[in-house]
Amino acid sequence: MPSLKELKGRINSVKSTQKITKAKQMVSAAKLRRAQAAAEAARPYAARLTAVMASLAAKVAGDSAPRLLAGTGADQRHLLVVVNTDKGLCGGLNSNLVKAAKAKAQELQAAGKQVTFFLVGKKGRAPLSREFPGLITGGFDTSTVKTPGFAEAEAIANELIGLFEAGRFDVAHLIFPVFKSALAQEPTVTQLIPVPAPAEAGKGDAVVEYEPGEEEILAELLPRYVRTRLFGALLEREASEQGASMTAMDNATRNAGELINKLTIQYNRSRQAAITTELIEIIAGAEAL
């Protein structure tokens, strides 16, 4: 049975923890709104780019297609680009991402492929390097800027395209969280390089003139497309992080409240018990006289 003083100390410490989690929850809620608005604002660009890509890719299929679209012809070396958050306190978000990355890597390794990792964000680094020592070839630190924007996506894309041109990998997969709601963020695995051919074929209605040429435009478009995909992934990560954080901190605040109630009852009981004992002692003493 802890003493009254110990109980009081514990209650106070849980109270200050609750204050922290509550503050973090409110900050996340405010940031989530902003992150969602940013993700919303990025949609028109991505949608238009995908539409243009689809109509062009259908026309420039075959031998003349750029390497970013056609691939290296091999399917041996795979690169997993894992987008994690930089900060913790967001529930199971990062461990779910790492789990998805691990599952994909093991699936590829079982099929006899070589797997390497490229990590964006801090949080996935430790668990993945424990699981796959020596396979992490590179990474990009997004913790130096407050909100990763297009400049960061551009830097990541340029590095990846550089690695691809240097022949360091054949296929790149992008693993990132997709924001469904504040309660659900789904780790998603998609192929990044070579750019998967869009499903919808070109509309083929009017004859479109191209300047300079279809291939030149496509060659310029593909790196842009990769950049946009990464930018989208960063935005989704931002929204997911804030959403997950909000939910996790809401739970933590509620748990702290329950714990405080429990401890307060325990504290009052022991206080009552101490008073009763004292009274009995006094009465017993008076009766003995």
Partner: peptide
């Protein structure tokens, strides 16, 4: 290049 209404379908970098 200038684009007015009714321009033919066209794409350029």
């Amino acid at each position: 290049f200038g684009v007015l209404e009714g321009h033919a379908p066209f794409m350029s970098t």
